[in-house]
């Protein structure tokens, strides 16, 4: 059974077909890339898979089960976590609280436990906090636990956002342009970090990225979309040589 199976995915906005019959498949824990020019529909694919938009047609199967009709928080609870193109942390909650809140899907206590401070409440809160500390430790963020993300430099904010996504214990991690806005030194760190996460956390990673460096070094397979259509699908080397891809990025005259 495949981890993720996206079949025939189409999404329209009014008269605009943002994504057309998109297909992809994660067998186990691959690291796939999704690239394409600006406005090609990459983020829309992510938004549909994470449940933020309903697909206009087609189906998304996660571990064999359709995610149709599920609200985003339910989809996330199944094991699909993501980051955002423009960082969307809760900037006025501490880094630690950011990681705590994102474990909302397995609170496993009710309102009454919270008011009465029952044993179950204490046990669960302790587990959630421990898990948060563990993730911060793993991503070298422990020293920033008490800081507000708005006071952190951009590169660290990116890292906190990845930590937050990991706290969901995802089986599939979707990264939406993780290298956007980073300095080249930070990009090198990011490449190492993603590679390490991929091994260490034993999960599949799906990545939208414009910096070819990142995609080429990390991904085993890359899909290219343009105007909502998939125009290429293959290994990094195949993609680099594909005339359609070159045309999409550089225009007809380039060839």
């Amino acid at each position: 059974m495949a981890l993720l199976d996206v079949v025939n995915l189409t999404r329209d906005f009014g008269g605009l077909r943002a994504v057309c019959e998109f297909e992809t498949r994660f067998e186990g824990r691959e690291l796939l890339g999704l690239i394409g020019p600006n406005g090609a529909g990459k983020t829309t694919v992510f938004n549909v898979v994470s449940g933020f938009y309903a697909p206009s047609a087609g189906e998304i199967l996660f571990q064999g089960k359709s995610t149709a009709g599920l609200k985003p928080h339910k989809v996330t609870a199944l094991g699909i976590a993501r980051t955002f193109q423009n960082i969307r942390l809760w900037f006025d909650l501490s880094v630690l609280d950011n990681i705590r809140v994102s474990q909302y899907y397995h609170l496993e206590y009710g309102l009454w436990d919270c008011f009465l401070r029952t044993e179950r409440y204490k046990r669960r809160e302790a587990a959630i906090a421990a898990n948060a500390h563990e993730i911060l430790e793993a991503l070298n963020l422990a020293e920033y636990a008490g800081e507000l993300p708005k006071n952190l430099p951009y590169g660290l904010q990116r890292r906190v956002e990845i930590a937050r996504a990991l706290s969901v214990k995802p089986k599939l991690l979707m990264l939406d342009e993780p290298a956007a806005g980073l300095s080249s030194a930070d990009v090198d760190d990011l490449i190492k970090l993603i590679g390490w996460i991929h091994k260490e956390f034993d999960l599949a990673i799906w990545m939208i990225e414009h910096q070819m460096d990142v995609v080429m070094k990390l991904c085993t397979r890359i899909q290219v979309i343009d105007f909502g259509q998939t125009i290429a699908d293959g290994t990094p080397l195949e993609i680099q040589a594909n005339p359609d891809v070159i045309k999409a990025y550089l225009g007809d005259d380039a060839i």
């Binding site: 994470s50 449940g51 933020f52 609200k71 985003p72 928080h73 996330t76 609870a77 976590a81 993501r82 955002f84 969307r88 942390l89 809760w90 809140v101 994102s102 474990q103 909302y104 899907y105 937050r164 996504a165 969901v168």
Partner: peptide
Amino acid sequence: IAAEIMSVD
């Protein structure tokens, strides 16, 4: 939106 996508109901 971030809350909803990060599993908060």
